[in-house]
Design a binder for these strands. Structure first.
Lengths: 215, 215
DNA sequence: TTTTGTGAATTGCTTCACAGCA
DNA sequence: TGCTGTGAAGCAATTCACAAAA
């Protein structure tokens, strides 16, 4: 596939948004869309969209726009989500269990197929909508990762356990970690990390609204 | 307070990380820290840290570094988290309930003090660690927002209900929205939004690890 | 006419490098 | 010496503007 090495990370983030919106547009039976239309919905300039797509070659037809079904397929291919990926969950606390019952993952090609937790009381319990996932001891991780070709790990453990849990994931062969831990975690260069710290999100918002209108 | 208007958003994000790390350092009883030390832990250059802080005036002492307790206080003031803020939760499904039991918010100065949901079966039920929060009908929102001076709203509803719910929040007087809905939401210019789409996070990671090592 | 794809211009962010201070 | 604060330089990302295609 035509995969340039220097795609800005902000552009990648936007490509995900394009795909999300195009799937909505596709469901509404529109066959084509222009960069201007797409940008209007997402709050992004049309030029920005064209530049982002230009990293991956020709997409649209001048005077017409982009053919929606083709573009959905192309974006999925680019993002590597054209087939379902197996995901593991580390941490079966409140947040972990909520993520398990979150249907959005499956809908977009990610399926949680294994759950791990250090807590003895949790190991062996059955989770998931169909109670079909047994919580496993982290020592089983390498075996399961190999057997089910798992590349993604979701980290939903307390900050105090985050680095140790991450090391386990990496050692087991996971290639990408989505972390909800409220701390920085260290990984080897070839492992990708995305950190979602919910408090940090609120703090950013706090800054944005402070000083504008006093309270 | 000394609040410049042109602070880059990436810088604000990093300020939150500095605060988080400084609190950890403070708990470990270190009294001072240099930009170099802090940067090493967070994977950020020392110059970057000094530039970010420079937006808000003088912080440190040449030859010594930054005094940790002072800097924690100053960053909290800058971010507007020097006192606890009341937060409302819209949506009492799986994700919403997990967020309710998440202790990280309280720890960092955000407290969920009201829960709303459209679903009749949920209204009136008691949630939270102490079962002290009654799920309310969204029509009660303006009154509660006013009474409890709520500026933050967490949106944990399905995508299909997201825009309508957002409009309710904004109408009720909420100034900042942390959305978990898998779609773009429209708000007036003076309302801040931060969108955490979990699938988009995984898709970004998917792109990052695709094409590096084949699968 | 509409809309893409793209070099050029611009804006914004990060890194560099060093004067000044402890 | 060690470290901050900061102008200058360099780099990256976005926007502009227009030739080419439908």
């Amino acid at each position: 596939m035509n995969r340039p090495d220097n795609v800005p990370l902000p552009a990648v983030r936007r490509l995900c948004l394009y795909l999300r919106q195009l799937e909505i547009i596709h469901a509404a039976d529109s066959q084509t869309v222009s960069s201007k239309q797409l940008g209007a919905v997402l709050g992004i300039s049309d030029a920005q969209i064209r530049k982002d797509l230009a990293h991956f070659g020709q997409f649209g037809q001048p005077g017409v726009g982009y053919r929606v079904p083709e573009m959905v397929a192309r974006l999925r291919e680019i993002l590597g989500t054209d087939r379902t990926a197996n995901v593991l969950l580390m941490g079966a606390g409140n947040l972990g269990r909520a993520l398990l019952s979150y249907k959005g993952f499956t809908k977009r090609g990610f399926e949680i197929v294994a759950v791990f937790d250090n807590h003895p009381a949790l190991i062996g319990t059955l989770l998931g909508a169909d109670r079909d996932l047994r919580v496993r001891h982290p020592d089983e991780m390498p075996e399961i990762v190999e057997a089910r070709s798992i590349r993604f790990g979701i980290l939903a453990v307390p900050g105090s356990a985050a680095q140790q849990a991450t090391d386990k994931l990496v050692e087991a062969g996971v290639r990408a970690v989505l972390s909800f831990a409220p701390c920085t975690i260290k990984v080897p260069q070839d492992v990708a990390v995305s950190s979602v710290d919910l408090s940090v999100q609120l703090e950013q918002l706090s800054f944005q609204i402070s000083g504008v209108a006093p309270m």
